[in-house]
Computed example of a mutant assay.
Amino acid sequence: MMTHQQNNVEKRFILSLIFTLLILVGEVVGGLITHSLALLSDAAHVFMDVFALGLSFLALRLSSRPADDRHTYGWHRLEVLAALINGLTLLVISVTIGWEAYQRFLSPAPVRGPLMLVIAVLGLVVNLVVALVLGSHRHGEKSHIHRDLNLQSAFLHVVGDAVSSVGVIVAAVLIMLTGLEWVDPLASVLIAILILVSSFRVLKSSLHILVEGTPDGLSLAEVEREMLQTPAVASIHDLHVWNLCSQDVALSAHVVLEADHAQSQEQVMQDLRQRLDERFEILHTTLQFEDTACIDKFACNGGASHPVVN
C-alpha cells in the first residue's frame, strides 16, 4: 500500500517532470534557432534529467509492490538499478557533448547571443523552481542517515541544470560583448564536465549499494557499541550491515549473551530492535543468539547453521 509520504514524493516527481519537459522543449527549439551548441548541450542534459525523473518515478511505483515468494525483500532494489542506468546514460551524454564541442572548435558556427541569453535565463528560472520542489523533501526527515537515492540524484541533476544554465548565460553575454564564438563550445565542455561529475557520483552511490557496502554515514563500530548497551549482551560478532535500497538498511549479527543473564531472549530482542531503529533507523534485523562466543571462524561466517531469531 502506498504511504502518504510516498504519494507526496510521487507528486513532486510529476510536477518536476512537467517543468523539466518545458525546459527541454524551450532549449531544443532555442538551440536550433540560435545555432548554440551550449544550449543544445544543456538540452541534452535536461533530456537525461527527464529520462532520469521518469525512470526514478517508475522505480518508485514498482518498489511499492509487496514482497512475494520470488522477491522476499520486495522490489526496493529497482530504485538502485534506476540510478545506475541514469548514471551510465549521463556518462554517454557527457562524452557525446565533449565530442560535439571539439567539432565546433574546429568549425565555429555563428551564434545568436541575445536569443540564447533569453532562453538560458528562462531555463535557469524553471530549474530553480524544480530544485525547490525536489529539495523541499528534506524538511521533516527523521534523520540524514538514509537519503532516497532517486530524490537525491534527481535534485543533483536539477542543480546541475541550473549551473549549466548559468554557464550558457555567461557564454551568451560574452558572445554579445566580444563576438568570440568559441565561447559557445567552451561552455559546452564545461557542461560536459559537470554532467560527468554527476554521473560518477550517482554511479558510485548505486554500485556501493549493489555490492552491499556498509551504508554511508554508518559505522560498524558505533552499531556494535550501541548493541552492547543492551542488558545481557556480552559480545557481538559476524556483524553485517547493508542497504536493501538507499533508505532501507538490513542487519545480521551473532549476539553472545551473558552466562547469568535474567532477561528472556524476547526482551533482549526488543531492546536491540528499539536501539537499532532509534539510533540508526535499521528495521530489517536477523539476530542469532548464542551462549558462548564463536570460536570456529568458518562457522561464524556462515559455515554452520543455527537457529535464528528474527
Rank of each mutant, 00 (worst) to 15 (best):
E281T: 15
R138W: 06
S36T: 15
V158P: 00
F289Q: 05
I169R: 00
G113L: 06
H240S: 13
Q103L: 15
D49W: 02
I145V: 14
H157Q: 05
L149Y: 01
V95P: 03
F200C: 14
P110M: 15
E222M: 09
K142T: 14
Q274E: 09
S199A: 15
H76Q: 08
G98H: 05
W99K: 12
S56C: 07
L53N: 02
E281R: 15
T3C: 09
N7A: 14
F200T: 08
K204F: 02
I14H: 01
S41H: 04
L39I: 07
F19T: 08
G302S: 11
S107H: 13
Q288I: 06
D271Y: 07
A187W: 01
V249R: 04
Y102N: 11
G30D: 03
F289E: 04
V170H: 01
E290M: 11
A299Q: 09
I18C: 12
D161T: 02
V118F: 10
V268S: 12
V28M: 11
V211K: 11
I145T: 12
R225A: 14
Q270V: 07
R201V: 04
E79I: 02
K204C: 02
F280K: 07
L239G: 09
L283E: 14
N310W: 03
V129R: 11
V202I: 05
T286Q: 05
L90V: 05
E226I: 07
G217I: 11
T214V: 15
E212T: 11
L55E: 02
G160W: 00
S56D: 03
L190Y: 07
V133I: 15
L149I: 15
S94W: 00
S264F: 06
C300T: 10
F13T: 01
L90W: 00
S188M: 05
Q152N: 10
L149W: 00
H208N: 11
L239T: 08
N243W: 03
W182D: 08
L21Y: 05
L218V: 15
L210K: 09
L84F: 08
S64L: 13
D271W: 02
N127P: 00
V249M: 03
V121S: 12
D148Y: 02
F57R: 08
V233Y: 03
Q229K: 08
L84D: 00
I209R: 02
H237Q: 12
G217Y: 06
V121Q: 11
A44C: 04
S136G: 09
V158T: 04
N301K: 13
V241T: 10
A250D: 00
S199D: 01
V309T: 14
Y73L: 10
L117K: 10
A162F: 01
L190H: 09
A52N: 04
Q6V: 08
L228V: 02
S165E: 04
F47H: 02
T286C: 06
T285I: 08
D248L: 13
Q229C: 07
E290S: 12
V223L: 04
R65D: 08
L272M: 05
A101M: 05
Q5A: 14
K297V: 13
L60H: 13
F155M: 08
I85H: 06
C300Q: 14
